[in-house]
Amino acid sequence: MTVDPATLAAILAMAAATWLTRIAGFLIGGRLVLRGRAKAAFDAIPPAVLVAVIAPSALATGWPETAAAAVTVVAATRLPLLATVAVGVAAVVALRALAG
C-alpha cells in the first residue's frame, strides 16, 4: 500500500482538471450558448478524445487487435456496454491464440 510521488502528482493534476470542468459551467451559468460549428466541435470532443486514445491499440498493434476491434464495433451496435467489453476481450484472446 504505497503511493508513488509521481503517481500522486498525476492524480492531483487529473483531479484539478476535472474539478475545474465541473465548477466552470456553474460559474458561467446561462451565458454559454453554443451554436452551429462551435456546438458541433464541442459535441465532437468526447468521441474524438476516446478514439484518439485507443486508435494505436486498435490499428497499429497487429492484425488480431485490429480484427478484435472490428468485432467489438459490431458488438457495440447491439449489446450493452459490459457485454461489448466481454465480446472484445474474448475475441482478442481467441485471435491472438490463432496468430500464435
Binding site: M14, T18, T21, A24, G25, F26, L27, G30
Partner: peptide, 30 residues
C-alpha cells in the same frame, strides 16, 4: 513510467470538457 503528468492532465481536461456545458445548463435550475 516515468508518469506523463501533463499528458494525463491534458487528456483528462479534454474528456471532461463536456462538464462545462452540463454545468452551464444546470446552473439556472439550481
Amino acid at each position: 513510467w516515468p508518469v506523463p503528468v501533463l499528458a494525463l492532465a491534458f487528456s483528462t481536461l479534454l474528456i471532461n470538457a463536456r462538464h462545462v456545458l452540463m454545468g452551464a445548463s444546470l446552473a439556472p435550475k439550481f
